[in-house]
């Protein structure tokens, strides 16, 4: 079974995001970038499938600028076998990403595509579902458990009311939630080995996908600041403030 894992290079989750003064976007200059945390979980799951003998090959894919290669090297160091880099400067909307992935799927014919449920930059939560829709494959989204047996998949999904179990036919799309696994740290020998693994380069034009945005970004602003920081000295004072001052209890 061949598994594709798309990964995205995003601002590291520990970095405080700054909006540019001209409100054109978020400042990405000299900011630490990392693999989207949900995508790390997707890579980990794919590598575990390979280690368990279920998967035969794991292919990491990233779309973005030259530096997205670093993100792919991380995936390769975690255990992916090879990588595909779609080189593109500037923004890519989820629909375009899904279209390019659909083209790669038609070339690579995997049985499974495993994605993070959302990227922590645009928080769109769309790409996996879009790809499933484009391909006409079943989708298991926001999964916290995965079982593969004899050509059939059973996933546990995290939903608002609790958990849900869904069975899917192969091939299928999976998007992963936080509790599926804990991603490994790549060991130094594996990081060295990853340097020798192949990264194939492509462009959106190679894949026949138009990258003209459908959404115009008019403005990126900071959210209103909260005026917090006041302290109270006791529970009695807290209850008094909540009851008499704020009037919320």
């Amino acid at each position: 079974m061949k598994v594709l894992v798309p990964v995205k290079r995003v601002i590291d989750y520990n970095v405080k995001v700054r909006v540019k003064a001209d409100q054109s976007g978020v400042d990405l200059a000299n900011v630490k970038m990392s693999m989207n945390p949900f995508d790390e979980i997707a890579v980990e799951e794919a590598v575990r499938l390979k280690e368990a003998g279920t998967a035969t090959e794991v292919i990491a894919i990233s779309m973005g600028p030259e530096q997205s290669q670093e993100t792919l090297r991380t995936a390769l160091a975690m255990g992916a076998d090879r990588a595909i880099h779609v080189v593109h400067d500037g923004e890519l909307e989820p629909l375009m990403v899904a279209k390019m992935l659909a083209k790669i799927v038609s070339e690579e014919t995997p049985d499974l595509v495993v994605l993070g449920k959302q990227a922590i930059d645009d928080d769109a939560n769309q790409t996996g579902q879009l790809l499933a829709g484009l391909l006409g494959w079943g989708q298991g989204t926001f999964i916290s458990k995965l079982k593969i047996e004899g050509g059939a998949i059973s996933v546990t999904r995290e939903v608002d009311g609790g958990l849900e179990k869904v069975g899917l036919k192969l091939p299928a799309i999976l998007t992963v939630d936080l509790r599926l696994n804990e991603p490994r740290y790549a060991s130094l020998p594996n990081i060295m080995k990853a340097r020798k693994k192949e990264i194939a380069k492509k462009t959106p034009a190679d894949l026949g996908v138009d990258t003209t945005p459908r959404l115009k970004t008019l403005k990126v602003a900071e959210p209103p600041k909260r005026q917090g920081g006041k302290k109270v000295g006791s529970i009695a004072e807290l209850v008094d403030k909540l009851h008499n001052e704020a009037g919320v209890i």
């Binding site: 930059d121 645009d122 990126v220 602003a221 900071e222």
Partner: peptide
């Protein structure tokens, strides 16, 4: 909201 609500983007859809 984007970036976990640390920025708010105004977008116009052309679809």
């Amino acid at each position: 909201p984007i970036y976990a609500g640390n920025a708010l983007v105004t977008v116009q859809s052309t679809d």
